[in-house]
Design a protein around this nucleic acid. Structure first.
Lengths: 202, 202
DNA sequence: CCACTAACCGGAAATGTCTCCGCATGACGT
DNA sequence: ACGTCATGCGGAGACATTTCCGGTTAGTGG
């Protein structure tokens, strides 16, 4: 009897496919480093990786997903700094303190990867939210908020705290309006501080 | 002696140019109404308006600016409802009440124009913030916040309150996560409420 | 070792945005 | 009226993303 295609996980990647994935990722990182994130075309990445464009799309599906793959690769260490690392970012500190530390760290990584994030978040409208890292940050924030303000709509508030760190707003504040990074962090502090200190809503 | 080109305002639009601007705006609105905002190409708008693509770009510069022109046209009345209209939206109500009313109204217009806003905000990364209406909302919000929390960085906080209403996040919450509109409004209330009720920061 | 199939590959083509530039024309001084 | 010229017009073309499909190949069961 044939194995029924019960909806399990999709079959594992073939060996050549996995090799190409690594090649493409490497090539993308190189091209980005060489010519800046804005000047990168899929064609160029494909050529640098020695594959056809079709292959890039088959492996990554999307321009945004390719860029996110590069980003995730770079900030893997940040991602578990706030999950497993030492306080105040990691567990062990009081939730309000962790919340602030997390927002500051997030502002720093946004500053560091701003151009790249802009590319990734812009292209298909929902891109930012379907990427795994957004879900991770959202979950973490919601968890902290739940400890600070039980009973609040922490899922919504997590989105609301992440929203001002969207790359397009962040870059507009930094470059067009000329806000220093410290001011952005202070603003986030004010917002988070209000959430922490406010008495129960009527 | 020749008139020196002292940097004054750019010369007024020629009559034929103004006519084309109206034609294009009209055509854009029609095409959007007929086939949905997502299915609209500049080529198509140009054809419907009876002009060349070059003309569309000369008059509006950008896909996003064209779409914003359509949007602004539609919400002109909303824009002066909170400037000149009756309370609680317009002047006359207490700032906290006005703040809430404003956020609710903004959520409603985002709901109403969501697809259109998504188009407009997505295309060139900074589009949302360079449009005149963003500046208007930002200024209004900053003014209200200044009355509620003097001494705070109201310019930053205004951005932060506008950020969760970005079309891409809003649509993700509504469509992908299935949040009802009321929940979004309640979330905004919670955020604004915290800002209103919080004691002075340490 | 062989046959078979699902996954994979490459690059041409479809589609869309935006630029460029030769030609036309409205606005204005005389 | 008429000459001058900045402004405007149109559409071909440069360039980018994404889809499609005919031919190839890795993995597997016998």
């Amino acid at each position: 009897m044939r194995e029924l295609p019960v909806a399990g996980r999709p079959p594992a990647e073939r060996a050549d496919a996995a090799l190409n994935r690594r090649r493409i990722l490497r090539a993308a990182a190189e091209v980005i480093a060489a010519r800046g994130p804005a000047a990168v075309s899929m064609d160029e990445v494909a050529r640098a990786a020695g594959v056809g464009v079709g292959t890039v799309y088959r492996r990554f599906g999307d321009r945004a997903r390719l860029v996110y793959a590069v980003i995730d690769d770079r900030e893997r260490d940040f991602q578990d700094a706030f999950i497993h690392g030492p306080p105040p970012l990691g567990p062990g500190a009081a939730p309000p303190e962790r919340l602030r530390a997390f927002l500051h760290a997030l502002a720093d990584r946004t500053e560091a990867q701003a151009e790249l994030l802009l590319m990734a978040e812009a292209d298909p409208p929902g891109a930012r939210f379907r990427d795994g890292s957004y879900a991770l940050y959202h979950m973490h924030l919601a968890m902290l908020l739940a400890r600070i303000r039980p009973g609040a709509d922490t899922a919504y508030l997590a989105d609301a705290l992440l929203a001002p760190l969207a790359a397009n707003l962040f870059l507009h504040q930094r470059r067009v309006r000329g806000m220093p990074l410290e001011r952005v962090k202070a603003g986030l502090d004010a917002l988070a501080g209000a959430l922490i200190a406010a008495p129960e809503p009527s």
